[in-house]
Every structure is written in structure tokens, then in C-alpha cells.
Design a protein around this nucleic acid. Structure first.
Lengths: 161, 161
DNA sequence: TATTGTTATACTCTATAACTATA
DNA sequence: TATAGTTATAGAGTATAACAATA
């Protein structure tokens, strides 16, 4: 399944892809009993923990879309689903009557608890064969690649994520 | 965006996810001019390089589905698309008249060349900030996690990937 | 009766474009 | 005129169920 046995970088992206898929699938399976999809989980986490957000646990729909790297229209769909099961609420923005603020409900908080536990469990299990020191090193390495990618993206003005 | 600043494993899966998405998106963008989607690229690569395949570059549709971890019905869709642009062909299986063998065409080979080049380029660029030694270490670590996951999956007989 | 691949259908996640109501 | 979010619509990529031909 690999083109050249000596192409470490390409193999690395393969390995990354497989790891991600397996972790995602495990997470999905364990979140299913709670009726939470991975996309919804991501949105809840963004809502709770996104940086540079003045008021905690509330955010404009457009900001949510930005943080999730999806189109505003797609954010509408995500918020619709979350609102339907009562994990978030849409409230009017006092400062701008066109805008919608998305707010985490009490149920949303409870869901977030379960999500973070499942995330922790799955990751812990998957990366158990890697020593904590190695895990740290891995994380640092990925972050340096990320940082380089992001700065390149800013200078190039390429809009892709 | 992270629940606890000390949860290295969970942060690792986040970092992995972001890296994967960016690499996938870059690959998609660069493959687009050739009219090849990531899913098609994956299928072509499986067809060419899947292990334990007696005859090279040909495989049953059901085997392809297995290797891609998708349902047989979904493999039909993928093969339809590839056949439409002439990258693979459906041929009857001499041993079983119900079965269909999927064969790589000359154009399929050419596409594979471009795919491997793009994959190499994108991975090379993304992981450039990580030293070759670190890249090797990363790969080894991910492989050990993978191996553990796979052996656990076999003993548990859980069918998820 | 069991298996291979297909037809029919549907769901999730994403997108663009046009529209409404504000600004 | 520009912006925030929605309605309408579409396209990947995946799934299940029922069916045809063959084993």
C-alpha cells in the first residue's frame, strides 16, 4: 500500500491517516450511545474552548463556522442538529439584530463532559504503546510542522486549511 | 480547543487530525487538475500495491472493498467513477462467473505516477520542519500503536477499523 | 441455500448561490 | 452597498436492503 519503502514522509502521512481514522471511528462508536456525532462534538468543544472569545460558551454562528473551517451555511446545519437535541440554543445578539449567538445549554455541558472523557479514553488507549516522553516529542514535532504550515499559508494568502 | 492542557494523548489525536486534514486537502487540490479525487487515488493505490494479492494490479471488487474498509456497494460507486474516466476496467473472473475483477489500465498507471509524485511532494513539504531522524521516530511510534491496536482488534473480534 | 455484485434509496457533511433582515 | 444567517439545491462518500445471476 506504499509506493516506495524509503519515502518516510509519505509513509508518515499514511500512518497519520490510519491513526486518525481509527481514533475517529472509536470515538464515534463510544459517543453513539449518547446520540452525539463527531461533528457535533467538535462544535461543542469549539464553543466551550475556542481561544479569543470574549464571552465564554457563546459565539456567533459565523465565528463557529470559522473555527470549524466550514462555510456559514454548513454551520447552520450543525447548529440545527445541536439545537434539536437541546445541547445549544440560538439567542439574538444584543449588539446586532442580524446576528445569532450560539449558547451552550446545561445539557450541552453534560455532553461535553462525556465527550472529553471518551476523547481522553480513546487517545489514551490508542497511544498507550508509546511512552509519555515519546508522546511529548511527537506532539512537539507535529506542532512545529503545523506552525510552519500556518505561517506559509499566511504569507501565500492561500485560503485552504 | 483542548480540554485539559496536560492531556498529551488527546492533544496528540487533535494534532494528528489537523495534520491529516491539511495534507489531505493539499493533496486533493494538487490532484484536482488531473480529475482524480482522494478516494479514487486510494483505490488505485490499493489496486497496485495491496499485499497478499496473487495477480498484480487486478483484484476482485469485494477484495477492493475490504482493503478500502468500505461496503461492497460503495466500492461499486468508486469503480464506476474510475471506469468512466478509463483508469480501471471491469473484467470477468475466469474462476467465478459472478465475480468481477478490477484491472488497472495504462491510463491508470499514468495516474498512479502523478498520484505518487503529489503524495511525495505534499508530505515532504508538510514534514519538512521535522528532521529525518524525528520523522523516523514518529513513524516507528505510530506503527507500534497501530500494531497494538490491530492485535487487540483481532483478539476482541471487534469488526471496526 | 449462500455468495457476488448491482439497483434503489438514504444519510452525513460539506459547498455555492440567491434571498431576507438588518447595518 | 455590505453583512449575518437562512432557504434551496447539489455533490461527495458512505450505508442498508432487496434482487439477479451463479455457486
Amino acid at each position: 500500500m506504499t509506493i516506495s519503502p524509503t519515502d518516510t514522509a509519505a509513509e508518515l502521512s499514511d500512518a497519520l491517516t490510519r491513526a486518525m481514522k481509527r481514533i475517529r471511528r472509536q470515538t464515534m462508536t463510544r459517543l453513539e450511545p449518547y446520540g452525539i456525532t463527531p461533528g457535533q462534538a467538535r462544535a461543542l468543544r469549539v464553543l466551550a474552548f475556542a481561544p479569543g472569545c470574549e464571552s465564554r460558551e457563546t459565539m456567533r454562528l459565523s465565528q463557529l463556522a470559522d473555527h470549524l473551517h466550514i462555510a456559514p451555511r454548513s454551520a447552520t446545519t450543525v447548529v440545527d442538529a445541536l439545537e434539536e437535541v437541546g445541547l445549544v440554543e440560538r439567542t439574538p445578539d444584543p449588539a446586532d439584530r442580524r446576528a445569532v449567538r450560539v449558547v451552550l445549554t446545561a445539557d450541552g455541558h453534560a455532553a461535553l463532559e462525556r465527550i472529553s472523557q471518551v476523547r481522553h479514553e480513546v487517545a489514551q488507549e490508542y497511544f498507550a504503546p508509546i511512552s509519555p516522553g515519546e508522546q511529548e516529542a511527537l506532539l512537539q514535532a507535529l506542532r512545529s510542522a503545523e506552525a510552519a504550515y500556518e505561517s506559509a499559508r499566511c504569507t501565500t494568502r492561500g485560503a485552504a486549511h
